[in-house]
Design a protein around this nucleic acid. Structure first.
Lengths: 213, 213, 213, 213
DNA sequence: TATGAATGAGATTTCATTCAT
DNA sequence: AATGAATGAAATCTCATTCAT
């Protein structure tokens, strides 16, 4: 008799955890239902008591992460906020940090979604497009406001928001998953600085740079 | 006598083209050899006269693109070059334009590689990692030089190069494949500006920005 | 509720039996997995629940027979034993009978192994070589002892043991499989006589044979 | 322009030789037509100018050998002939030597036929059965005569002839193909002795053996 | 006489899913 | 709630054979 009594939530949670691990390790396409149940010591039949299909468990796996992301994005009203460039940077950094934390708390699902992100598999195309579009929308809206207030440069907003999200998505994937265990505040700050100031030296250089324009 | 004479190059080219289309449309995993030959009006057996396996044709499809990318990266000695910020921007923009053009000329293969890029499939893991690593290496090296010359900000070079490449890879994917048919020089210029100056207003803003530091 | 309850051993045994029959009838190479499952009224997929591959089921089919052969050969310490020629013959005959019985009890596997025996197929080459070598080793060792004791003629032992085994293997194949259902003791006796005395008339000559020694 | 001019016989002979080698190396079933033509530098199409099918070339490969065997068997009227046991042995030895020489002169085809001998492949079943039956018939007939004349023991002739041929077939396979390059006269003598005298010591006994005649 | 491009019928193997117990 | 045996639809790859040139 096992110490952990089997009950509904128990089993479901175990299956979800096993699915995350399996999808991380071999990817959704190659993951077999038998792998997932194998990890829990359950039989294949049991799987279908809890989930309609392999796709179903994937949606459940990603659902939480996506909800947290949506939440985090909803909360935001201050991506580019402040009076000085320093304040703007602090605000952007805070935003990035929040989103990065959501990733870190959902490392498995995040990896799964970003890895297979732009891929073709029916589910991913759909889910990734959904979250990506929402992210883009939020960023564009905030950026437009900030441009209106003169906080950030008057530039092609579509370009800029795509650049920002691309930079965020791919590089957070790189630092969190490929490299592993990043220092989130530092990473957020570094990213914010790059996004706001770019690569050019800030101090003396800037003044002269753009006058000719 | 048929209009298109059948011969070896002919058929091989037809198969390669069909493979690109098929991989673009449904992804490598779901693409069936029968889809590929179906497009050419050939039989399954014929496929194996030209390619050892489905993986083989994929490698052939990507090979050209990867060679052109390597070439473009090799040629580069001036990513961040110039006396003034304007010149540096022109040099970066030229580099980005060159690489974007390689993508545009190989839109199919590029889509295939970036789509499945960070995925799990054996071939892609390998090929994508290869090109990604090379790209990273080049950018890091040039960045280090440029920092040495005081051309760009003295910042964490690993961060910055990952940001740069992430931004480039994901957003060029977005503009070229999701949106389609971009104006390359404009895109390159926009990207270069973002990379160098970030989002903050350049003119009056910058001087005051960092004084407090 | 069906009369024959389906369970693991049941199905496995059915598949093994069907495989033996199929291999006997059409040979290993031409036997299709679909033939085997067809005989049991099972589906193709089921086959792979029980066996890793077609080769796997073949090994399982032959394993028992080979183990019994090894056992029979291990037990033997008296192939050529006795004081008089009659006793030697009795001992040889008993040995042959024992080995023939192993064949008779495993007629299917034996047929499969001997039929494809010296062939090229990977598995057979391996398994047949193994059992053949062991058979040869045993016979040579016992023959050497018997020559030492003067029980049998001082002859080239390699020749003689190859002759003996060849005679046994091919002719038991002939009598058991081509002709079918032989009288084993009679066959063993006949074979022993041939092996010991050859074809020449023995009549008066033999009595003196072994006395001196 | 090659030194060896291509002509009909030439090409056919080349294909036959290549087929023998290929069949020897990988067996008939696994041998591919492309292997055979590959060895000759010919194309697959050419193969079918000379042979109706893969089976056809196999028959042609074996035909010569089988004719020589038939010839050798036809010639024989003296397998067990002579007044003394020594003479009988000489006659048997001569016969065996003759047949062994046919094998040696047709080592490739012989290997192919004996290897796949009792196998299931349509052709072999047929061809091997044919030659085997003829061999058996000849031996039985001569044996019956010899028994009639009191030259050899009055024994079950079917048994004895099967023993003899089995011994011959398998052990010549062993010595010629597995071991390679045997001393034919020695082997024939050794085999004849085993067949006539068996394993028991002959020493003093034999002289008296046939006097009673 | 020779080529070589093309064929297409199969064969093995995988795995998500079902369902009676 | 759980099992586990069974399914069957694919998908990749092989190779003897054909045939227009």
């Amino acid at each position: 008799m096992s110490v952990i009594k089997r009950n509904k939530e128990n089993t479901e949670a175990a299956l979800l955890a096993a699915a995350v691990q399996t999808f991380q390790e071999v990817g959704y396409a190659k993951a077999r239902v038998s792998d997932i149940v194998g990890r829990c010591g359950l039989s294949q039949g049991t799987f279908y008591l809890y989930f309609k299909s392999k796709e179903d468990i994937l949606r459940r796996v990603l659902r939480d992460f996506m909800e947290q992301m949506n939440q985090a994005l909803d909360d935001v009203d201050n991506i580019f906020d402040g009076q000085t460039s320093r304040e703007v940077r602090a605000s952007l950094s805070a935003f990035l940090e929040k989103v990065l934390l959501v990733h870190q708390r959902n490392l498995g699902p995040a990896e799964i979604l970003w890895r297979e992100g732009f891929g073709h598999g029916g589910v991913f195309a759909e889910l990734h497009a959904e979250i990506y579009a929402y992210f883009l929308e939020i960023v564009q809206a905030r950026m437009a406001e900030a441009v209106g207030k003169g906080l950030i440069r008057d530039e092609n907003i579509e370009d800029a928001s795509v650049f920002l999200i691309s930079l965020f998505e791919r590089s957070s994937f790189y630092f969190m998953i490929v490299k592993g265990a990043p220092d989130i505040p530092r990473l957020a700050a570094s990213m914010a600085r790059f996004i706001l100031h770019g690569l050019l030296p800030e101090s003396k250089a800037q003044p002269g740079n753009h006058q000719g324009k």
